[in-house]
Nucleic acid binder design. Sequence first.
DNA 1: TATGAATGAGTCTTCATTCAT
DNA 2: GATGAATGAAGACTCATTCAT
Lengths: 211, 211, 211, 211
Amino acid sequence: MPDEKNTILSKRRRPKQARSTQLVEDILTAAAHVLREQGAHRFTTARVAERAGVSIGSVYQYFPNKNALLFRLQSDEWVQTSTVLRSILQDPTQPPLDRLRTAIRTFVRSEKAETDLRKALSQAAPLYGDTAETRQLLADGHAMVGSFVEEMLANAPPEKHRLAVGILAIFFEKIAESICDRADTEDVNLYSDAMADMFCGYFSKLRSDVS
Amino acid sequence: MPDEKNTILSKRRRPKQARSTQLVEDILTAAAHVLREQGAHRFTTARVAERAGVSIGSVYQYFPNKNALLFRLQSDEWVQTSTVLRSILQDPTQPPLDRLRTAIRTFVRSEKAETDLRKALSQAAPLYGDTAETRQLLADGHAMVGSFVEEMLANAPPEKHRLAVGILAIFFEKIAESICDRADTEDVNLYSDAMADMFCGYFSKLRSDVS
Amino acid sequence: MPDEKNTILSKRRRPKQARSTQLVEDILTAAAHVLREQGAHRFTTARVAERAGVSIGSVYQYFPNKNALLFRLQSDEWVQTSTVLRSILQDPTQPPLDRLRTAIRTFVRSEKAETDLRKALSQAAPLYGDTAETRQLLADGHAMVGSFVEEMLANAPPEKHRLAVGILAIFFEKIAESICDRADTEDVNLYSDAMADMFCGYFSKLRSDVS
Amino acid sequence: MPDEKNTILSKRRRPKQARSTQLVEDILTAAAHVLREQGAHRFTTARVAERAGVSIGSVYQYFPNKNALLFRLQSDEWVQTSTVLRSILQDPTQPPLDRLRTAIRTFVRSEKAETDLRKALSQAAPLYGDTAETRQLLADGHAMVGSFVEEMLANAPPEKHRLAVGILAIFFEKIAESICDRADTEDVNLYSDAMADMFCGYFSKLRSDVS
DNA sequence: TATGAATGAGTCTTCATTCAT
DNA sequence: GATGAATGAAGACTCATTCAT
């Protein structure tokens, strides 16, 4: 199988002045644009620089390589989404299955809002996906889902927990994308609810298996 | 989104003589090997030709371009898998939900047997995926799943049918791959059964909603 | 210190047809020209290709990378020179010190004939010098000098042999180049003879130290 | 041969205030460090500035370009070494050949103490070597060796003088480096003595040829 | 003076595809 | 039909140098 370089993605000086920060912002915006409009395989540093109205050198001033740019795009999306998700999944005022249902709908809707970008990002995953940084991001997400499952399946046998976490991870990483890919904006809720029904049905059965 | 060339993939003459057929076979075997072993981004016509012990020119004799090669690989897999699937889903001796469960397990197992190849193929999808041929293939699969759903949800309101087909399509196109990606050989059955439980639970509920 | 890649230099298909051989010849000629005229730091694959009236791709068809081109130039020079040197140093009809004197003059003269090229090659050494192939070439040369020293200092204590080989190696690898660099064509013989006198004086003293 | 820019290396103001002097010192120390540790081809102004804890702009405040930095490094080494050499070669209390022998050993030992730096500097020579300043430095060294030879070969025919100077120059410029390159710390004295023997043998013969 | 962000020409290398033999 | 040499556009990345602040 492939031998990705696993190059470091985050080095490079972090800008301190407003102007630089603006530049980074411009670059990221341009990068998102290029990725969205041209797709992963037309995503080149030159095009990003051009779109940002900046020299190639400036891109490399802030990002050690192309993959770091992709990683940053993914990371930003991920941080934002997982913040929202966390607040939903940890909300003590709702029963776990309701939280799950809300999380699913919310996640899919947010994914739908940026389908093209997410698809392209997912497409480009091999370029940035096999690095410590990305693994860390995934691990964080896993932990979050893990503690939710812990609560949801409190009385279920532990070996079921791993399975539940795995299934939810597959949902958040892949299924949601597929749904957005297939369904138009209206149908998205239909699919979300269907998936929520399936998950809730399955998990409530898991819970009752024990009591 | 991108402006893929959408070049025609199947034009080139279909060889009729034994020798040519053998050549095509060799090329496809080599292509599968290269894709499996080197991954999508190392998949080059030169490497395929070398592995096949054939000149690059010969590859182009039978495949109009690199994408056609990928398409053919995908198509072959797909035809083979859908044949098996069809026989399972149309088996009149089993109740629909049992067929579905069997189909799921079988599909995941077959996918697991060739994970590397399928992952690479999925990776390369943007190169061949946006063409009439591919869409036809998908449509065929859809039709098959559609008639199964027709039978399974005979009494359910028709708007549910579309949803059910969509969900199953997502499963066969993406979820199975995710499962194979995440779970090792032993866990694969765990995940398959969990998915089967979820689907069957959901669909039997859909059915009873009506009666 | 630096971390040269030590990439393989000799792979790539060896041309079989006359036409290809001619092309390789053209590329090498162009490479020598560029190196001679522009120096090591302007030696680029693009310039070589242009000078050869050939596309860049063609250069890479026969040489896996830029360093391989340099290595080949060096290697060709080296093989040719060492063939001549060998026939001189192994000539049984002459006493060893006479052979040495002849070898020195001959070597310097041949080096002088291509001073610019050799200087540039020496300049570029870090690019190709740290590889198995180059080490092999050096080892071959060493062996040749070694057996000559064996004969010349037959009766001297063995620890002197190593030293003598080292000194001669330094001569052939570096001093000759320095001489050519410094002296104009007429003076070259003066310097050669001076070096020969020094070496012969030193070695004959080593020999007599024993008897 | 190449068309080096031959840009002027020493223009820029020579700083007079303590702070600037310190800055220059820091830059030079950093430059030496980078050159020693990373080698000639990783020697970049950015790395020097970073190592010195100084901005790139500051480097350019005191050195008109990268080559000037290299030149200054070389020049400093050269001035220091030639001072020592001068005191040895002009020592009236020792017979000339003894002084030569001492000079050789001393020179090689000092070179060995900084092999990495000297090798890298020698490697980078094309970048700074073809300028008036460098030629002046060499001329100074030549003059020093010249007056030593004048004394050593007082009675020998003048045409021999030029040759002797040339040979010694080659030694100091190249052979010493080769010796350090080839021999480990212990062997360095062996080689030094061998070279000293060769030179002394040769030169004493030159002297006696006349008397 | 000092800073360091910005520039962009220049380098190596890959690979899909063509076409003369 | 078969071959495989030839092409050249395209891409990632570096680094000396400048200049606005």
